[in-house]
Nucleic acid binder design. Structure first.
Lengths: 337, 337
DNA sequence: TTGTATGCGTTATCAA
DNA sequence: TTGATAACGCATACAA
């Protein structure tokens, strides 16, 4: 212990620790302590100081997937990047939990209690063990879910402002002069889907355009060239699809349009509420008119909300805004059908 | 504290902790403790645990890059997945230590001390703060570096057996009948590059083939169609490139061959020591003959080595083997040049 | 089978 | 300006 080499003990803590209280220390003493610590290679034990300080500067990230999100849930990855960056900026380290961490399952009773080792925790995933989470929150544990979550009123969350972003796309189309727009979505009740549809509907109503919604469990077989032609015959000039994990809605629409021998934006306009799947992205594929989900920003916002909870601060913004992407698949409707 | 809900204190520790000593506990007591802990959502404080028992079932991962896998996503992320899986399998949770937390840099004195909160730590990154790491290791802290590291003799590491994998590719080409092979690498001294070249040279010598090595700082401008033709005129029938973060060597070679109007494996054979960059991968691009780096396996091996260090166990294998990928860019050399 | 007492290395409070 | 001393929450040896 450096205290032996030096002269005291508390002093060591004062010198080597932050000395938050601003207690004055003699320069000689300070130097002696520093030198002794250097010679002995002494370093304050982080575990001990955290025990005394009653916090450990650890933020948890719990993902309700078996392992940490790999290829399939690739949409999670950029979120993690944002989480990591913001956490680092605020001086927190991250503890990673997964459904299978330490051999337990996420839904198993007590599985979520492990996160208490962190000062607060972020939750991530489609299906959440509501019971367990509720218990955690009820005990006053700081938790933030990434993605809108209304089932648990007590649970704080950050989400993407899909409604606003969807509305922007609709208005963009309306401005081009489209009066009838068809919306293709998968048969799913994820908040992200619901919000997009709501934004679509509201904006359509607001802009005085007729917006028809198609909800399909199997877009690949439902959304065909015939379907596109039929809608066009009804006067539809623009088609909008939602983005999902699989990208099925957009892929179906995209292929159906191609199969019908039509081209955007010449014959019709296309909008995508999100980003295209990997196989329809990049050179060789037109950039869809739509928006990009700011996933990294979402992660960062989650961290900000969580740390504001930790410090009883106010003012973290729960909704992040999407960036509109003009793209090349939307334009004025053809003169006459 | 669960002790209030239950009946004791030591007992709680016995039930919830590992109970390594195998002390017998009444089943009723055990159940009561478990239930109380569940209701209160109680979980042992890791810091206290580490302080008292000198362990807390936490494994650290420290990356020397600013943030986790942003820029190098394809490279680091799969490793992290492997780390996570193996850690989970062994009952450890993961702590991600950020290189540049709160404005500090990894090389700053004391920047690495945080990791001692965990029982042991994995290190990851191109440039390592040798001084700080040496101090850590000198103090007996269990540390494992992911990637070969010879600068610090005391530092344990796991790495990829690039030499063997490179040799396998060369032998594959030699078996096809190639006698002159050109090797393109970037001008870089990373162990991964050095090992590959060594494997290439050794295997070439062993197979009696002439292997010329080109080291280029700017492959894009150095490796041209003319260059390829010149080599072919010298009798070179196969070209091998190394994989790096940027994929520059392979990209240059690939484009030069195309620009020369040549095609693999008809006119020449191509090998890639690693995986192609994203823009040259997937449909539309031939699968290069070469090997895949088992990054997840690398991460898992790192965890195994680290935990073997923790338990003073023996027998963790430091080198992971690459999987040979036949691909479609190599074949027999053309009959006559 | 369970409870008591002690120590782990810091920080924080209070005296000196 | 510096030194005792009491938590911090847990694990472990030991007593009951």
């Amino acid at each position: 212990m450096a205290r032996l080499a030096g002269v005291s003990q508390t002093t060591v803590s004062l010198v080597l620790g932050g000395n938050k209280q601003g207690i004055a220390i003699h320069e000689d003493t300070r130097r002696r302590v520093l030198q002794a610590a250097d010679e002995l290679g002494y370093v304050p034990d982080p575990a001990a100081r955290r025990l005394a300080a009653a916090r450990n500067n650890l933020l948890g990230v719990f993902s309700f997937t078996t392992t940490f999100p790999t290829a399939v849930e690739h949409s999670y990855y950029p979120i993690l990047v944002g989480v990591e960056q913001e956490a680092a900026a605020q001086g927190y380290d991250l503890v990673l939990f997964t459904g299978s961490s330490a051999g337990r399952r996420a839904a198993a009773p007590g599985a979520l209690d492990r996160v208490r080792l962190a000062d607060g925790c972020l939750f991530l995933g489609r299906h959440i063990p509501a019971q367990e989470l509720r218990k955690l929150v009820a005990h006053g544990y700081p938790a933030v879910h990434i993605g809108r979550r209304d089932e648990l009123a007590e649970l704080a969350w950050v989400g993407v402002d899909y409604a606003a972003a969807a509305a922007e796309v609709v208005r963009h189309l309306a401005d081009f002069g489209h009066h009838r727009i068809a919306y293709v979505r998968e048969d799913d009740d994820a908040p992200a889907s619901t919000d997009r549809e709501q934004g679509f509907r509201d904006a359509a109503a607001g802009a005085g355009v007729h917006g028809g919604v198609v909800r399909s469990a199997r877009p690949a077989t439902d959304i065909t060239a015939e379907w596109v032609r039929a809608r066009r015959d009804e006067g539809v000039t623009a088609f909008v699809a939602e983005e999902t994990d699989t990208g099925a809605a957009w892929r179906a629409l995209y292929r159906a349009v191609a199969a019908a021998g039509l081209e955007a934006p010449r014959d019709l306009s296309l909008g995508l509420l999100g980003s295209p799947p990997a196989d329809l992205n990049g050179p060789g594929h037109p950039e869809p008119t739509g928006f990009d989900v700011p996933r990294a920003e979402l992660g960062a916002a989650a961290v900000r909300l969580l740390t504001s909870l930790l410090c009883a601060r106010q003012g973290a913004e729960p909704l992040v805004t999407c960036a509109f992407r003009p793209g090349v698949t939307a334009g004025a409707p053809p003169r006459s059908p």
